[in-house]
């Protein structure tokens, strides 16, 4: 049960029950859709970027607790960040959830609650779906991102 509790931390339940920034965005200047065909998780990310800074970010969709919480935490973390910082966060986050080694977690803040995913390889795609979709939105890749 112990690593289960590590995966499903309270913060994750909280964000699953009450996802933050969970809405569409009429004046978004970047958006992309992501899909995990394995479990049917869908997410759409909206961004408002001005002068290389993420002014606003939101998401819509449906998914498991891990993917919903990850998307919610991501939007919270990204507001006010530069695009460069966002890419860097993605990299660090990705290393944290996939790597065998505990990566340098500085600056990950709340995102660290997702580190338990590392012990559940089948769930890595749930945690990274929103981030892959963010990446597509920032690169204006209009195809639906798929984790497969």
């Amino acid at each position: 049960m112990s690593d289960l509790r590590e995966l499903y931390q309270e913060v994750i339940f909280d964000h699953n029950r009450k996802p933050r920034n969970f809405h569409g965005m009429a004046n978004a200047n970047h958006a992309a859709e992501g899909y995990n065909p394995l479990c049917g998780d869908k997410v759409k990310i909206y961004l408002k970027v001005d002068n290389g800074v993420i002014g606003d970010v939101s998401f819509e969709g449906s998914g498991c607790a891990i993917s919903t919480a990850s998307a919610s935490l991501m939007t919270e973390t990204l507001k006010g960040r530069t695009l460069l910082e966002a890419e860097k966060l993605f990299e660090t986050f990705h290393t944290m959830v996939t790597g065998p080694e505990v990566a340098h977690l500085e600056n990950l803040g709340k995102l660290e609650v997702l580190c338990g995913v590392r012990e559940f390889p089948a769930r890595v795609k749930c945690a990274t779906l929103a981030w892959h979709t963010l990446h597509a939105a920032l690169h204006d890749d209009h195809h639906t991102v798929s984790t497969e």
């Binding site: 289960l4 499903y8 479990c39 998780d41 998914g63 498991c64 607790a65 891990i66 089948a122 769930r123």
Partner: peptide, 13 residues
């Protein structure tokens, strides 16, 4: 209130 994917992980455990 619980997505099937989360059920699957917990059952596997």
């Amino acid at each position: 209130g619980v997505h099937p994917h989360d059920i699957g992980t917990i059952l596997d455990h």
